[in-house]
Amino acid sequence: MRQPAAPWTALITLALLGASESVRAEPCATYRVAHYAQGLLFFRDEQGREAGVDADVARELARRTGCNLVEVLESRVRIWGQFRHGALDITLSAVPSPEREQLAELVPYLKGRSFVVTRGALAAELPNADSFVAASQLRVAVVKTYLYGAKIDGWLGQLRAQRRVEEMADFAAAARLFEAGRVDAIVVNPLSYPALLKLVKPTESLHLPPWGQGDKTVVCLALSRTRVSDQDRRRIRMALNDMIRDGTMEAITKRYVGASTAHDLVYDGKTE
Rank of each mutant, 00 (worst) to 15 (best):
Q3W: 10
W8V: 06
T9K: 10
A10Y: 04
T13S: 12
L16A: 12
L17I: 10
L17N: 04
E21Y: 08
E21L: 11
E26G: 00
R32E: 14
R32K: 13
Q38F: 13
G39Q: 06
L40T: 03
G48K: 09
G52C: 00
A55N: 12
D56Q: 12
A58S: 09
R59L: 13
E60L: 08
C67F: 04
R76M: 02
V77G: 00
R78I: 00
W80K: 02
Q82S: 00
A94V: 11
S97P: 00
P98H: 06
R100M: 08
Q102W: 12
A104S: 15
E105T: 15
E105C: 04
E105V: 09
E105N: 13
P108H: 11
Y109R: 04
L110V: 01
R113Y: 07
S114A: 15
F115T: 01
F115S: 02
F115C: 03
F115N: 01
R119V: 06
G120C: 06
A123S: 13
E125I: 01
L126A: 05
P127I: 11
D130G: 10
D130P: 00
D130V: 07
S131K: 14
A134F: 10
A135P: 01
S136C: 04
V142M: 04
V143T: 10
T145E: 14
Y146T: 02
L147W: 05
A150V: 06
K151E: 08
D153F: 03
W155K: 04
W155F: 15
Q158C: 00
Q158A: 09
A161L: 12
A173H: 11
E179Y: 01
G181I: 03
R182V: 03
D184K: 07
A185V: 07
V187P: 02
N189D: 15
A195D: 09
K198T: 08
K198Q: 15
V200A: 05
V200N: 00
K201T: 05
K201L: 08
P202F: 07
E204N: 02
L208H: 13
G212R: 08
D215P: 01
D215A: 05
V219F: 13
L221P: 03
T226V: 09
R227S: 01
D230L: 14
R233E: 06
R233M: 02
R235V: 02
R235P: 03
M238E: 15
D242N: 07
D242Q: 14
M243D: 06
I244N: 07
D246F: 05
D246M: 06
T248I: 03
T248M: 13
E250H: 11
A262F: 03
H263N: 10
K270E: 10
T271K: 01
T271I: 10
E272D: 12
